[in-house]
Design a protein around this nucleic acid. Structure first.
Length: 484
DNA sequence: ATAGGGTTAG
């Protein structure tokens, strides 16, 4: 790396090259620079250290980052704390991020705008609304300035946590807005199914001569897709080309989604086959789901073939196809999918739910017995079942899986991840507390119904929601309407 | 002369 006879690096040259590796990001090259720092005795330089810390954080190597962080024995500065927090946030490790944030203040270091962006990001990523709101209040209380980046992060956080009106409020308060700020707001409105607002905002953006980018168009196109605006969507697609914005894979994905939801399967199919770039698994999956209720066996076969080529290890695809065949009573094919899973050593990854309690996110997966308080949780679960039954409702939803054994089925039914999270929430809070559960996968209308009963019976407001989707589905590909 | 931050489909 370093030529013979070249002048030795100093803390300046090293810091710059490390930063270059961080922005790429290039882990291997960065690590070579790390050993150079050792060799030339430049390790103690705070600039080199924070550079390395940030490099590892951006490479999602949080353990390596932590190593550097812990090695900074002298006073850790604000930049080091912020970098470490952002490393946790990037990985969605919201508890670690917030614990560190608290630790930082205990150490007498005052956070600034940059620190707060990372903290807000962690809340956005995990859907931790109570925490997010607390962090926003903290920002106000400390008089931290809502600059362009922090405002954009707040808009995104509120939108992802379901408070679109708060997101709008932050947006309206901004004195200066760039493409990213507009995009965050437009995407947020689109996820909430507010097409009219999203598209209205987009035209205001154009009026004000702010140039949109491909992310802005993700918002615009998905707004159309969520609301069945096929013609508008097509028009915006050509607008995008006319503006000289190169469509990204995500933009193509939005168009496929638009056509699929509107029941235009043929058109979606030729759109995919005519794409100038290779479609990814999201696109093939969308097409597969859309062709579920059609007679287009050819599309089903091609899409599943592509899916298994692209993601042979993803259980999602096997389950999807297995359920598709089951819905058509093609049991031999269902069995074949099961066999394929076994042969390829694919295991089902369970969905998970989290619940916010006293500033921490507690995560649960289906049938997870590893929680230290699982005994108490199970007692609450039993009590819930009794109360729901007394209210005249079946306590558990029917299994979606088709050939699990009876015993296995019993467990799967009783210990839905969101049910565990609700039970824990009931255990840890007193009426009339709001229990907020975030589910990583979509939950079924039946769960919604049961949740209402639990809510009433325990005098607690219980909100179970999907992590990021807030719109109501329309069109042929999805039918789940009950989100809240 | 050096360091940490925001928008991305289903």
């Amino acid at each position: 790396m370093l030529r013979a006879g070249a002048p030795p690096p100093n803390s300046f040259t090293l810091a710059f090259t490390i930063k270059a590796c961080a922005v790429v990001p290039a882990l291997g090259e960065g690590q070579q620079l790390h050993s150079q720092a050792f060799r030339h005795g430049l390790e103690p330089s705070p600039y080199v250290q924070t550079g390395l810390l940030n490099l590892y954080a951006r490479c999602e190597e949080v353990a390596l980052a932590r190593n550097v962080f812990d090695g900074m024995i002298e006073d850790k500065n604000l930049v080091a704390w912020s970098s470490m927090i952002s490393g946790y946030s990037r990985l969605g490790m919201v508890n670690e991020a917030l614990d560190l944030f608290r630790e930082m203040q205990a150490a007498g270091v005052n956070p600034d705008e940059v620190t707060m962006v990372s903290v807000i990001l962690a809340c956005a990523k995990t859907g931790a609304l109570d925490l997010g709101r607390w962090v926003h209040a903290f920002i106000d209380r400390k008089g931290i300035k809502l600059d362009l980046e922090l405002s954009t992060a707040l808009i995104d956080m509120y939108a992802k946590c379901g408070l679109i009106e708060r997101a709008r409020w932050v947006f309206d308060e901004m004195v200066e807005r760039d493409t990213k700020a507009w995009s965050a707001m437009i995407v947020g409105l689109a996820t909430h199914g507010l097409a009219e607002d999203a598209l209205g905002l987009f035209s205001r953006m154009l009026q004000l001569k702010v140039r949109p980018n491909n992310v802005t168009f993700i918002g615009v196109l998905s707004a159309c897709a969520h609301n069945g605006l096929v013609d508008d969507g097509r028009r915006y697609w050509s607008t995008m080309q006319k503006m000289g914005i190169k469509a990204s894979l995500e933009n193509y994905g939005c168009m496929v989604d638009l056509l699929c939801r509107s029941g235009l399967l043929d058109e979606a199919y030729s759109f995919v086959t005519d794409m100038p770039i290779l479609p990814n698994s999201v696109i093939w999956r969308n097409l597969l789901v859309a062709s579920k209720s059609s007679n287009r066996i050819d599309i089903v076969e091609l899409a599943s073939k592509k899916l298994f080529e692209l993601e042979p290890q993803s259980s999602e695809n096997y389950v999807l196809l297995s359920n598709l065949y089951a819905s058509k009573s093609q049991w031999d094919r269902v069995r074949y999918m099961r066999k394929m899973m076994k042969d390829n050593n694919v295991t089902v990854v369970a969905g998970c739910s989290s619940v916010e309690i006293n500033g921490h996110m507690h995560k649960f997966v289906v049938s997870d017995g590893s929680h230290p308080e699982i005994k108490e949780i199970r007692l609450v679960l039993r009590e819930i079942a009794d109360r729901v039954l007394r209210a005249g409702h079946k306590p558990w939803t029917e299994a979606v899986l088709h050939d699990v054994g009876e015993e296995e089925k019993e467990v799967a039914l009783c210990e839905h991840s969101e049910r565990l999270a609700i039970a824990y929430g009931l255990l840890k809070t007193k009426a009339p507390h709001v229990i907020r559960v975030v589910k990583n996968l979509r939950f079924c209308p039946d769960c919604h119904e049961v949740t209402k009963i639990i809510s009433k019976s325990y005098d607690r407001e219980i909100i179970v929601r999907d992590r990021v989707r807030f719109h109501r589905f329309i069109g042929g590909s999805c039918s789940c309407k009950d989100f809240w």
